[in-house]
Amino acid sequence: MMRRPSVLIALCASLVFAAVAQAEPLPQRWVSAGGALSEWIAALGGEARLVGVDTTSQHPESLKALPSIGYQRQLSAEGILSLRPDVLVGTEEMGPPPVLAQVRQAGVRVELFSSKAELTAVDENLKHLGTLLGAEQRASTLASDYRQRIQALQAAIGQAKTHQQAPGVLLLVGHGGGKPMIAGQGTAGDWLVQQAGGRNLAEHDGYKNVSVESLAGLDPEVLVVSDRALTGDAAVQAMLKENPGLSASRAARDGRIVVVDPTLLVGGLGPRLPEVLQSLARAFYPQGNVSFKP
C-alpha cells in the first residue's frame, strides 16, 4: 500500500517540474560565439536579442555593429558577463573550457550546438535554436525547406552526372592574391566541392600551400576562389596574376572560375549555403539544368 501514494507523489512532482520547466522564461539577451549560429538566429528573427557576437559572426552585415567578444576559442568570462547575457550559444569549438565553466557558474545558460557539416546537424541546431527563441514553427519550416533544397539539388546533380563527368576542381583560399592555400581532404572547402558534385583534385589533408608546379600538373577544370581580402573579379585577377601555373590551366582558359565568400567555410552549415551550392553546381555542370526545382 505504501507504493501507490509514493508513485502518485512522484507523478505529481514530475508534472509540477515539467510545468516549471515549461514556464522558464525564454532567454532575452543572447551572446553568440559562432558565425553560422548567428546567421541562423538572424534568420529566425532573433537578431534583436543578440547583445554580442564573436569575430566569426560576419553575416548579416548588421552584426558587425554589436560588441565583439573576440575569437570563439579565446573567450573572456568577464567580457561576456559584462554584456549581462541570459544565454551564450556556440559550437563545440567554443572555449577555453575554464572560461565556459566560469560563465556557467555566473548563472548564464551555455548552449552548445554542432558545427559538423551534416544536414542532421542543421536540423538539430535549428530545432534547439527554435525552442530557445520561441520560434519552433519557423525553425521547423526553415529546416525542412533547407533539407528539401539540398536534396533537390543533389537529385539534379545526379541527373547531370549522367550526361557529364564530375569535373576536377581545386578550391583556393587566398589573401589578396598571394600564395593561396588549397583545400585538401576533410576540409569544409572539400565538403562544399563534393556537395556541388565536383571532384576535389587535392589529395593532401587540411589547407596547405601547394607548389606551383604540382598545381599546373593537376590541371583543374574549375577553380573555386575564396579570398579573405578581395572579392569578386579582383580576387580572381589577383590570384591568376600571382600564380602563372594556374592561368595556364583549363579552368582559366575556359574562364570557369567561381568566387565564394570565405566566411562560408567557418563554423558549420549556415543559411546561405544552398544558394552557394547551387551556383557552384551550375559552374560545374553548365549544360545540366541544376537548380532546386528539377
Binding site: G52, I69, G70, Y71, Q74, S76, G79, I80, L83
Partner: peptide, 11 residues
Amino acid sequence: ARLLLAPAELP
C-alpha cells in the same frame, strides 16, 4: 589586455 578591447581580450 582585458580592458582595451572589452568585451574581447588581447593576448
